[in-house]
Structure formats: C-alpha cells, structure tokens
Computed example of a mutant assay.
Amino acid sequence: MTGLLSDPWFYAAAIPAVILVGLSKGGFGGAVGFVGVPLMALAMPPVQAAAILLPILCLMDIVSVWTWWGVYDRKMLVDMMPGAVMGIGLGWLTAALVTEEMVRLIVGAVALIFVLRWLYLQFRHGADHAAAPNRVAAAFWGPVAGFTSFVAHVGGPPFQVYALPIRLDPKVLSGTSAIFFAATNALKLVPYFALGQFDTTNLT
C-alpha cells in the first residue's frame, strides 16, 4: 500500500474521480459522482478507494448540511434512516468476508445497474401525480441506499427512487438528501476504521 503514493495510475484515477464527485455534490454534475469508486478501483482495491473518498465526502457533507440547514422532511428521514443503518451493516459484513475480486464485482454491478436505470429513465415518461410516502417502500430502499453507499458511495440513486416520486419541494428534497447522506457517511467512518482503512497511506 505504501507504493500507492508513487503510482501515477493512482493519480490518473483519483484526481478525476474526486473532481467528478465534487461536481456531483455541488449539483453541477448530476449523477456523475457514482463513477468515483469504480474509476479509482481500476488502480486499487475498491474498499481502499471508497475509504480514501469517504473523509472527502464528509467534508462536502458539512457544506451541504450548512447550505440547506433547517430545510428537510422529517418523516422521510425517520422512515429511511433505520434501513440505511442496516444496509451499512450489510456492506460492512460484505467487505469483511468476501474477496477483493467479489467486492470489485459488486461495485461494477452497482455502477452498471444505475447506468442502465439512467438510460431507461431517459425514454420513460413519469407519472403526472405525486406518490404518497410509503413506509414499506422506504424500508426497502433505505437498506439499498445504505448498502450501495457503503460499497461504492452511490446511495443517491436508490434514495431518489423512493424520494423523487413523492415530489417534495426541491429545496426540501435537497435538504433531506443532505442530512441523509451526511448521517450515513458519518456512520460509515466506524466500519471503515474497523476494516483498517484509515491508515497513514489512505489518509495521506
């Protein structure tokens, strides 16, 4: 791992990945941030790639929560956060027990699924009425968001699958999303630390 900092392929993958994640967090790049971990996984183990990005994401979350402070939907957070915690736990278990190749396969599959979903949505006309909040749906998409957030920092698409049809005010949706992912990313610090990923090399 110490050779990582002298590997030009690391910088070739990490620099554009961090820029794309930053653009996505800032709202300019849409969903392009989901390529961050898969791109970095070309040059290093995917769990290490996710661990390197996590502190950066936490700093971005502070700005997001500050920007949207006090504007959020409490019910959506209450319905989705317990499942997200379960999803993070499942992601932790997956990263601890399966091989690096299997984690790489999961990260690739998650990225591919969300690309295909994006393509599908380009040709699909949405419903013209808002959906009602649904605890059953939240109990499904919350864990999915937590799991995909843990393994590849791509919890946004599952969160949006549940949240967008409810058609909250855009500011309320942004504030709710900011709090949701600030909380999940902060929780992820514990398992990533337990996995030994916050060593000198990764933090540097």
Rank of each mutant, 00 (worst) to 15 (best):
M80A: 08
T99W: 13
Q48W: 01
D73T: 02
P45F: 03
V110D: 01
A152P: 00
V110F: 12
A109W: 07
G126C: 04
L121A: 09
R167A: 08
H129R: 13
Y120L: 09
C58F: 14
L90E: 11
E101P: 00
W68Y: 15
G142H: 08
M76R: 09
F159A: 13
D169Q: 09
L54C: 12
L57R: 02
L59M: 11
L54W: 14
T99M: 08
Q160T: 14
W69R: 14
A109P: 05
V107S: 03
L57K: 05
V98K: 12
R74C: 12
L116P: 06
V154H: 07
V154A: 15
P158S: 05
M80E: 07
P165N: 02
G155L: 09
A51N: 03
F150M: 13
G108C: 05
V103K: 00
G108P: 03
V110L: 10
N134I: 04
L119V: 11
V71A: 08
W118E: 15
M44T: 09
A109N: 08
I106L: 12
T148M: 01
L97Y: 15
A131R: 12
A49M: 09
I56W: 07
G91K: 06
P55M: 07
R135K: 12
G146A: 10
M81D: 06
S64Q: 10
W92C: 08
D128P: 14
N134E: 12
T67S: 10
F147K: 07
A131E: 13
I113F: 15
T94E: 11
L105S: 06
E101W: 06
A111T: 08
V151D: 01
K75I: 14
D61C: 01
A130Q: 03
W118V: 11
I88W: 02
G89I: 10
Q122L: 13
T99F: 08
I52W: 00
A109H: 05
A50H: 01
